[in-house]
C-alpha cells in the first residue's frame, strides 16, 4: 500500500530524514519508536505533504501512485490520514461543519454521493458513541478549548468519520488517561481491517499492548536503525535505545 524508498527531507535547510526505507502492506500495522527529535513527526508531515518540509530525495508510492507529486488535500482524498501530535484549533467553525465539508470533499473526489443530513448525523452519533465523545464537543468549534485528551479523541473520531485507507497516528497516546487510552485504542482496533493499514508513532509499549503491531521500527537521527516484530517494543521498553545505537547499526541498510 505504501512504499517509501530512500526518503530524504529538510526542514529550514537542515536534513532531518536521511534515507528512510519502509514497505507497508494492506492490513498491516507498523509502529515507529525512537528518541525525541529523531524525525518521527517529520516523517508524518512529509508523507502528508506539509509544505514546511522539503523532500530532497527518494520516492513514496501510495497504492502505486506517486504520493510526493500530490498536494496535501489530494493525499487526504486518496485516503491518507494523520492524527496530529498537536491537533490545531479552528475558532468559529464547529466540529460538525468541519467534518461535513471534509467528508464531502473526500467523497466527491472518490465519485461518491454526498451524505444526506440524516446519514451524516447518524454516522456522527455512531462514531461519537464508540469514542464516548460528548455531544457538545461535536457542536463546539474544532479543538477550541478542548482538553489535551479530548483533542486526541477528536482526532480518532475524525478518522472513524472519514474512513481513510492509511492512518498515521502521531503519539495519539500521549496525554490520554488510562481509560481514554483504552477507548481510543478500541476505536482504532474496531477500524483496523484487512483493507487498511496503520503507521503508529509512539514512545510507549502500553499503546502497543492495545494496538498490536505487526512490525516495530526504531528511528534514530533520521534513519531506521532497527526493525523487528512486536517483541522489539518490549525489548526497547526494558533497555532503552542505547544498546541498538551502539550495537546494530547495520540494520539500517536492510
Amino acid at each position: 500500500m505504501l512504499s517509501i524508498k530512500n526518503l530524504h527531507a529538510n526542514v529550514d535547510g537542515k536534513e532531518i530524514l536521511k534515507g528512510i526505507n519502509l514497505e507497508i502492506k494492506t492490513g498491516e500495522v507498523h509502529a515507529i519508536m525512537g528518541p525525541n527529535g529523531s524525525g518521527k513527526s517529520t516523517l508524518a508531515n512529509v508523507l502528508t505533504g506539509n509544505k514546511s518540509y522539503e523532500v530532497t530525495n527518494g520516492t513514496v508510492l501510495f497504492e502505486g501512485k506517486d504520493l510526493l507529486d500530490m498536494d496535501p488535500e489530494t493525499r487526504a482524498r486518496e485516503g491518507l490520514f494523520l492524527a496530529f501530535q498537536y491537533p490545531i484549533e479552528i475558532p468559529g467553525i464547529s466540529n460538525a461543519t468541519f467534518l461535513k465539508t471534509a467528508l464531502n470533499e473526500i467523497r466527491k473526489y472518490n465519485n461518491l454521493a454526498e451524505l444526506t443530513p440524516k446519514e451524516f448525523l447518524d454516522r456522527i452519533k455512531d462514531k461519537a458513541k464508540v469514542l464516548g465523545l460528548d455531544d457538545t464537543l461535536i457542536s463546539r468549534a474544532v479543538n477550541v478549548g478542548f482538553s489535551g485528551g479530548e483533542k486526541k479523541r477528536n482526532e480518532i473520531f475524525q478518522m472513524l468519520m472519514l474512513e481513510p485507507k492509511f492512518v498515521l497516528l502521531d503519539e495519539t497516546d500521549s496525554g490520554l488517561d488510562i481509560d481514554a487510552l483504552r477507548i481510543v485504542s478500541n476505536g482504532v482496533n474496531i477500524y483496523r481491517n484487512p483493507n487498511n493499514a496503520f503507521l503508529v508513532v509512539t514512545h510507549y509499549q502500553r499503546l502497543l499492548n492495545y494496538i498490536q503491531p505487526d512490525f516495530v521500527h526504531v528511528l534514530s537521527k533520521g534513519r531506521i536503525i532497527k526493525s523487528g516484530g512486536k517483541e522489539l517494543a518490549l525489548e526497547l521498553e526494558e533497555k532503552g535505545y542505547d544498546w541498538i545505537k551502539t550495537k546494530e547499526f547495520e540494520t539500517e541498510k536492510v
Binding site: 502528508t48 505533504g49 506539509n50 509544505k51 514546511s52 498536494d71 496535501p72 488535500e73 493525499r75 487526504a76 482524498r77 490520514f81 494523520l82 496530529f84 491537533p87 490545531i88 484549533e89 479552528i90 475558532p91 468559529g92 467553525i93 468541519f98 467534518l99 465539508t101 471534509a102 467528508l103 470533499e105 473526500i106 473526489y109 468549534a141 475524525q158 472519514l162
Partner: peptide
C-alpha cells in the same frame, strides 16, 4: 499555515480552508 495544513490534511482545499478560517473568524 498550520490551520490551513490541518484542513488540507482532512481533504479540504486551501481555498476552502481559507474561507473556513475566515468565516470562523467572522462568526
Amino acid at each position: 499555515e498550520d490551520q490551513i495544513f490541518y484542513l488540507n490534511q482532512r481533504g479540504i482545499s486551501t481555498e476552502d480552508a481559507v474561507n473556513m478560517i475566515v468565516n470562523g473568524f467572522c462568526k
